[in-house]
């Protein structure tokens, strides 16, 4: 039997997931990226390897997330797909009649509208990351709570306070103000959850036809306070799928399986990678006024990939070198 690996390198988490031919999830790993995507990919592979059945081989690899190019260079991917498509593919596989997907990740939030399993509309938050996972993380840290405690507290609220959700800087000052007035912590946290949902629906969800079944996924879906706030605001049941926090990786794995049908063999470099040393360095190219930041990837001291130059001068130079 063949296995397919999906890797989702997001701003906050790096997820790896392996499926079999029938799309059954064999193994999944959720790791914090902690600003070090290369290390977290390597760590993920290291954790994954012993857990996989020994006889099976990885037949295809897909990468997604904001670090998808980096991951693709590193492991040798068969398909590199944006996270919107990956999330939609995974959602449609988990709940085939899904019509709306609400996704809130570390720095992105998106909404995907589907009809018969096909994306018909989507939106993503604009330049501002207010109301995403990173903000909840920060607020939990400020109160000295783990994000799990934070989420549970929201459910104990009796009378959620009103918090400005338009901007996380304003929201924070609002929360501090409310806390100094003597409101209870659960009420403030629940208020924050509502503000986040309000902001999401007014911003990302503006003008979108949100119809059930509604799926809520991404790391923030672990937070029952937000789920309840969504249900209240949308007046409908909100489903958090079983693999809510690794949906991008699931989608990438499914897409890898689709891609491998078209191509003969996988580009996957194999699990030997975990014994290699990865390093990156970067430099500013002063060849023209664009001053591109060129990034170089070294595997065991050998320059393996370059990217970031707009004119491809450096990328092509390396490829020629490798070809010779």
């Amino acid at each position: 039997m063949s296995l397919y690996l999906g890797i989702d390198v997001g701003s906050v988490s790096t997820n790896l997931l392996v499926i079999d031919e029938e799309h059954n999830v064999i193994e999944s790993i959720y790791l914090r990226t902690q600003g070090r995507p290369l290390e977290s990919i390597k760590k993920g592979l290291m954790m994954l390897y012993p857990r996989l059945p020994k006889k099976e081989k990885i037949a295809g690899v897909g990468t997604t997330g904001s670090g998808r190019q980096l991951a693709a260079f590193l492991v040798g991917a068969d398909v590199v797909k944006n996270e919107i498509t990956a999330h939609a593919v995974a959602a449609a596989q988990q709940v085939p009649d899904v019509r709306s997907v609400l996704e809130i990740g570390g720095q992105d939030s998106k909404i995907i509208i589907l009809e018969n399993g096909v994306v018909t509309d989507f939106a993503m938050n604009t330049v501002c990351a207010a109301g995403t996972g990173s903000f909840l993380d920060q607020q939990a840290a400020r109160m000295g709570l783990s994000i799990q405690e934070f989420a549970q507290l929201a459910l104990q609220a009796k009378n959620p306070v009103r918090i400005a959700g338009r901007c996380s800087v304003f929201a924070e000052s609002d929360m501090i103000h409310k806390q100094q007035l003597g409101h209870s912590l659960p009420d403030i946290i629940a208020g924050l959850c509502q503000a986040l949902v309000r902001n999401y629906l007014n911003n990302v969800g503006k003008g979108k036809n949100i119809k059930p079944p509604v799926l809520f996924q991404g790391g923030v879906a672990a937070n029952p306070g937000i789920k309840v706030a969504f249900e209240k605001a949308l007046n409908t049941e909100v489903i958090v799928p079983r693999y809510f926090n690794v949906m991008g990786a699931l989608g990438a794995a499914i897409l890898a399986k689709e891609a491998i049908v078209k191509q003969e063999r996988t580009n996957f470099k194999g699990f030997n990678l975990i014994e290699s040393q990865f390093t990156t360095s970067s430099f500013d190219c002063h060849g023209c006024p664009n001053i591109c930041e060129v990034i170089e990837l070294y595997i065991d001291g050998n320059l393996t990939a370059r990217w970031g130059d707009k004119c491809n001068k450096w990328t092509d130079a390396l490829q020629t070198k490798v070809a010779n």
Binding site: S66, K81, N82, E83, I84, T85, V118, V119, T120, D121, F122, M124, V127
Partner: peptide
């Protein structure tokens, strides 16, 4: 450029699937 690329690619996928 990641943000712009992601959105553009996803939009392209959407158009292609249509």
């Amino acid at each position: 450029e990641a943000g712009i690329n992601t959105r553009l690619e996803a939009f392209y996928d959407l158009l292609m699937r249509r």
